[in-house]
């Protein structure tokens, strides 16, 4: 798994539960105690061991853990870069949802060997959407629920998110009900990074 993903999990644990919990889980999962380098690649198995270890330590199911990680990735002040990159997907939450169709391509444009969940978005009309998630690791659907929840807040949209489980082809599926596209002001997004940070 790409170091960026492993490092995100590491940052999530340290920022949310503190360095002691990180050290404990790292030991249990047999991953480098000093953590991961964002720009290197690691064996897939390390990521799974890490999720399982923290799921045990924090007494949370892996699914819940992944959902929390998804939310953290978008909403934590330390990871502004990711939120901004996602906001380039569109001006409204609906546009953003459609942009997820090319999430993988967008990620690879930035970091050629980064594999994020591959998503397929179906617009069923009436504010109802289905997302099919494919990834080399289980749990992509739960991770994306966390991401979508935080992004809806960011856009100021009111949504209902539902994990509908595995489809016949073995892919994770999410159901999105958009109740109100302009529920709140959301967070401002300026194309110019400087403009946003000077506010």
């Amino acid at each position: 798994m790409h170091g960026l993903i492993n490092r995100s999990i590491q940052l999530f644990v340290t920022d949310t539960y503190g360095p002691k919990i990180w050290a404990k889980g790292a030991e249990l999962a047999n991953v480098p105690k000093d953590g991961f380098e964002a720009m290197l690649s690691y064996e897939d198995i390390l990521t799974e061991q890490m999720i399982n270890a923290f799921s045990e330590i924090l007494d949370k199911s892996p699914d819940m853990l992944l959902e929390d990680i998804g939310t953290y990735l978008v909403s934590h002040p330390r990871l502004q870069a990711l939120r901004r990159l996602l906001r380039f997907g569109g001006e409204t939450f609906v546009e953003f949802l459609h942009s997820l169709d090319s999430l993988n391509e967008r990620a690879r444009l930035a970091v050629y060997d980064l594999e994020v969940p591959g998503l397929e978005v179906f617009d069923d009309g009436g504010g109802s959407f289905r997302l099919i998630c494919r990834w080399r690791m289980p749990g992509a659907g739960h991770l994306m629920i966390g991401v979508l929840r935080a992004m809806a807040d960011d856009y100021g949209a009111l949504v209902l998110l539902d994990y509908t489980g595995w489809d016949r082809d073995g892919n994770d599926a999410i159901h999105v009900d958009l109740l109100d596209d302009g529920f709140s002001d959301g967070r401002q997004f300026q194309l110019a990074r400087k403009a946003e940070f000077s506010q």
Binding site: F88, A110, L191
Partner: peptide, 21 residues
């Protein structure tokens, strides 16, 4: 243009990360 801005920002984030590494 928006895709280009996305790319510029993504690249500079990656460069920052590489510089730190």
């Amino acid at each position: 243009a928006v895709e280009m801005l996305y790319l510029v920002e993504a690249k500079s984030a990656v460069m920052d990360e590489l510089r730190r590494l």
